[in-house]
Design a protein around this nucleic acid. Structure first.
Lengths: 297, 297
DNA sequence: TCCTTTGTTTGTTTAATCCGAACAATGTTA
DNA sequence: TAACATTGTTCGGATTAAACAAACAAAGGA
């Protein structure tokens, strides 16, 4: 039994939770899958799946074995691809997760270059946007905006997002335009916090390179970028919106930048990938390309 | 072609520097080896060996690929052996390097237990004693006496060697027995230094838990344990010899311990193994067993 | 220059995998 | 409760790939 293929099949079965679906995905008869798993199990001397005809779940050992298999397979993949020096040789599926707006404004417009240079890479861009389990989902790298906390990943800084303080025309009609930080006490902030636990609303701004925060009134807190933007458009308060998301609205006059001398600290945009000994060749060329296009814009 | 097997063959050919020898070692025809290597090469898209009928050497790429293969295979091995819960299931070859004296006095006398409990482990003890390249030689773990410096390895403290200050009867006849540190100025030290670079001879001793060194005359420096012992037996000076090596001679009256209140700092005995994500099951049980026997003695 | 050794090639044998279909087991539904 | 549909396993025939042995070619040593 080919161990490598057996492991691959095991991972697939675990992901699908079904022998039949894994067999279909590989275009093999169910028996091949069944034999492969049995081969693995007898070799390991333990059972990997609880199989009851209606559901296939991992045993305790299987649960341990799955991620190990995945990292080993990924490493093998990386080893096999490292000598592909001709761009045409670089092939395989590359799964990347990034904020949808980043994809639409930065990546997609420049993508023609990349797929021309590496025609045999099949790129799959998803925008689950939130913490996805990279190993479990088989994601090769993710792009994240804001500060980082997941330490099991290697981070590369890509670029920064300037944030603008924005309000809608309807807001100005009601409350006017604040000109100083002091005046913010008479205004409303739309609060953005990924985790809704924070207590007081803070207006963040840079003062000679230092980050400062000013407490101010707020009647709304949201935890999604879309809701944040929409709330600002509806005149519910001041929002500190990344330029990349705001500029089209500013052009149309739907948002008005204010307090331009008190911009918030730029948000870092980072590229994260699992800390393996070696990343795949296709991953390294993609990350290098990403850095090249973010450097120039 | 089974990738793992191909890699294994590649490693073997690289180690032997010969297709024929690798084939013999595996009991396979040369053609199988040849095909496996060719398969690997075509898959990687690069050449792994410079083959001229008289000699087989790694190409630059092969040089890169070899250690990667070795670690990957070791990891695969570890994955495959992790569920072997019954001692009888733990099998495979285990290569250990340790000082010959340690093997003879500590390990071998207790080994019966171990091979009875794990009858399917084939233990290979070598005493190359000096820095061997563990990965290259395929050594699973090594035992070393003294301070450590190789940082790529994980170290486990095992035990400590008490050192005794010894001289031979013939030495006593000539020089007498020193009773204080001060008197050492009128005596001779046999200098032991693994690297013969040190300048002045130092008598090392513990003073209320602190390590102190006393310069003293010396007319001989050696860098091997056997030579060190032999020099002391011949009455050439004072030697600070690990108890384990000295006690048989002391019993026979060939060595006399002196200055027993000024023993040198005990030398740590450590167990070193490569830092892989997971050690093999057989390695973990062996290391655990080693710790258990050194704790009790 | 001849000879021995070594890696590659070739054709044949052998073993393993693949495949489709029949089978058994289990959760669902009528 | 019983018939049904779906899923994992088993089995025999077809196919493919690896193992093997021998012949071949190339390169260093005598």
């Amino acid at each position: 039994m080919d161990k490598f293929e057996a492991m691959q099949r095991f991972v697939l079965v675990a992901q699908f939770g079904s022998f039949t679906k894994a067999a279909d995905a590989l275009g093999l008869p169910k028996s091949s899958i069944s034999n492969a798993i049995q081969g693995l199990e007898s070799e390991l001397g333990t059972r990997l799946f609880h199989r009851s005809t209606r559901s296939v779940t991992l045993t305790q050992d299987g649960e341990v074995y799955l991620p190990q298999c995945q990292t080993l397979l990924a490493e093998l993949d990386a080893l096999g691809s490292q000598f592909q020096r001709n761009p045409n040789d670089v092939r395989g599926i590359l799964r990347v997760d990034m904020p949808s707006r980043f994809a639409a404004t930065v990546v997609i417009p420049n993508l023609a270059d990349f797929i021309e240079k590496y025609p045999n890479i099949r790129l799959k861009i998803s925008s689950a946007d939130y913490r996805v389990d990279m190993i479990k989902e088989g994601i090769d790298c993710v792009i994240r905006v804001g500060s980082l906390d997941d330490s099991s990943l290697i981070a590369r800084p890509l670029t920064q997002y300037r944030s603008l303080n924005c309000v809608s025309p309807s807001y100005i009609k009601k409350f006017g335009i604040p000109q100083t930080i002091a005046e913010l006490a008479n205004h409303k902030l739309i609060e953005y916090s990924p985790s809704l636990g924070n207590l007081s609303a803070q207006f963040e701004y840079m003062d000679n390179g230092k980050v400062r925060q000013q407490s101010m009134p707020s009647s709304l807190a949201v935890n999604g970028t879309d809701a944040y933007l929409e709330a600002c458009l509806s005149g519910l308060g001041i929002a500190q919106i990344p330029m990349i998301g705001a500029e089209s609205f500013i052009k149309k006059g739907l948002l008005i930048p204010i307090l331009s001398e008190f911009e918030a600290e730029p948000m870092p945009v980072s590229l994260l990938y699992p800390s393996r000994r070696q990343p795949t060749k296709r991953l390294t060329v993609f990350m290098d390309w990403l850095q090249s296009i973010t450097r120039t814009t």
